[in-house]
Write a protein that binds this DNA or RNA. Structure first.
Lengths: 197, 197
DNA sequence: AATATAAGTGAACGAACATTCATTTATATT
DNA sequence: AATATAAATGAATGTTCGTTCACTTATATT
């Protein structure tokens, strides 16, 4: 039998990502995607059941990559401030170096597709995060908090800064905006201040 | 001459909002919208130049409502912790009481439509915010920060909690999640801790 | 070299799409 | 009551959509 062409598969993912980020979900047309990826429309349906399945599988794939990047050198048993810094910097670096990939994830998260994809987060990631935070609380390095509150304070500011950095504009969109290392450090410091007793 | 039917206009906005939040931007069809709003497709084009214009104008309209709600009883010259609390609670209440409206705004913010709409934020709102923060810095109630960092720490956690509350599920989507007043207070307290010297 | 098998294709399908247009309807002004 | 005007319409426009299907192509196995 004939083997699958990994390059085709990758091209489809790549172009789909680009189309969605640049034109939104209503800008993703299967025929245009096929043309952009250099394959026949029918080929896409070998890999994906339908358009929705393509989007959800793409999300799973990108989420995996993001999680891998975020957890690089991360040790859930490390001291809290250190562990949080590793995750922060990993995440910031990955987002800035892979703007299409991270914008796509943000776009999904704030769209109805999220209801479908949300269940598919790697449970090992959640467990690692939970252990990390509970370690911190046990050692009195972190104030006692529901996971959702912790998460919102720890990472939502980062995501927001990254989003403005991508857009190249800050609040109200009138002024240019660049997220530099100093600002990242400054924000992280304040986040740690909020979360430590 | 014949007068415009305000009810029709409102019905179009209402149904468009519902369609976008429930089915995403690719779920907004002009013909389905017309049917849902009880008007002819052609009628929509009296109010809006085209589909994109409808979405952008809808954003402007909803943004106005959100800003009005957020600034209710807000005084930019009030003490920092007090002013921030007013905005927080206003915003949280409006979002929870008007889930469609606030989900729509979040959806736009994380989509390519944001590039078009971002310039249209009411400048008076931005000026009020700027004055409020600069007041705080001047009075040494707030650490010195770029507006973008301030904003990210002050509000991104709130938006994130509200989003999970809407979805009814927390991190990873496996556990139910309800944002209650206690949690809101707890988070606000930590945010203030981060932002005050 | 022959064969079986799944990858890959281009053209075609009906359905749904955004938008327009000739016409009708309601009403403020006269 | 007549008139002017813009609102409102339903049907129709051509286009693009997601998806399928009969067919060809490449290759791993024999």
């Amino acid at each position: 039998m004939r083997a699958r062409d990994e390059l085709k598969e990758e091209a489809i993912r790549e172009e789909a990502l680009k189309m969605i980020v640049e034109k939104g979900f209503d800008g993703l047309s299967m025929q245009k995607l096929a043309k952009a990826a250099g394959v026949s429309p029918a080929t896409i349906y070998i890999y994906y059941k339908d358009r929705d399945d393509l989007i959800v599988q793409l999300w799973v794939h990108e989420m995996d990559k993001m999680i891998d990047a975020t957890l690089k050198d991360f040790d859930p048993d490390a001291p809290f401030a250190e562990g949080l810094r590793v995750q922060w910097m990993n995440r910031a670096r990955y987002s800035i170096e892979n703007p299409l990939n991270s914008e796509f994830l943000e776009q999904i998260k704030h769209s109805p597709y999220h209801n479908v994809s949300i269940d598919k987060v790697d449970p090992r990631f959640l467990e690692a995060m939970q252990r990390f935070v509970h370690n911190g609380i046990r050692r009195k390095e972190v104030v006692k908090l529901p996971m959702e509150v912790y998460w919102s304070i720890a990472f939502a500011p980062l995501y927001n800064l990254v989003r403005m950095h991508m857009a190249g504009r800050g609040l109200g969109g009138r002024q240019p905006f660049v997220l530099d290392d100093k600002m990242l450090e400054q924000t992280l410091k304040l986040v740690i201040k909020a979360l430590t007793p």
